[in-house]
């Protein structure tokens, strides 16, 4: 099925089997291997990408559902040699060990910062009527869709906190 999809600013016209997940199109069809396949069932977050600026699990979406959409993967975050602030924060805080979950963690954190800027609440938000303050509890809750088997959670928390400070 013919589908036009913009990935990291480049338009691609692809002919895909309707069964193809967005994740498999990115990895196998477009050779963008940065986005990782972990559980392939929406439970681990390794496949997190940004679609029209919003983070989703690429494994639980069909490529044909994204005709005309703009997707950003971990490969599309940096500007040339200049890393995205979230990428730089993950390096500064040593927020990974094996690195397999890291692209998903980074894309998730980029989405998180936009959601907080838009005032979207989370389960950790004490006052639903008030502004969102990005406490550590908020970061943990908002990143709970990304599992890290190496358990680099304290460093991931610090990286997101650092990136949020840079963004503020």
């Amino acid at each position: 099925m013919l589908t036009t999809i913009r990935v990291n600013g480049v338009d691609h016209d692809v002919d895909v089997d309707p069964r193809t997940s967005l994740l498999d199109l990115l990895r196998e069809g477009l050779d963008l291997k940065g986005t990782k396949k972990g559980c392939d069932h929406g439970q681990c977050g390794a496949c997190t990408v940004l679609v029209n600026g919003v983070r989703i699990n690429a494994c639980l979406s069909l490529a044909v559902m994204h005709d005309g959409d703009a997707v950003v993967t971990v490969e599309g975050l940096a500007s040339g040699e200049l890393l995205h602030p979230v990428q730089q924060a993950f390096l500064t805080e040593d927020a990974f060990q094996c690195g397999y979950c890291t692209p998903g963690q980074i894309c998730s954190a980029v989405g998180l910062l936009a959601e907080v800027a838009a005032g979207q609440p989370s389960e950790a938000t004490a006052d639903l009527d008030g502004p969102v303050t990005l406490t550590d509890a908020e970061i943990r809750e908002r990143m709970s869709g990304n599992i890290c088997r190496c358990s680099a959670y304290p460093q991931i928390l610090a990286a997101v906190r650092r990136a949020a400070g840079a963004a503020a």
């Binding site: 929406g42 977050g45 997190t48 919003v54 983070r55 989703i56 699990n57 639980l60 979406s61 998730s108 989405g111 998180l112 959601e115 989370s122 908002r142 709970s144 869709g145 990304n146």
Partner: peptide, 8 residues
């Protein structure tokens, strides 16, 4: 769910 799931 997670934020990623709730976004979709």
């Amino acid at each position: 769910g997670s934020v990623q799931l709730r976004n979709k």
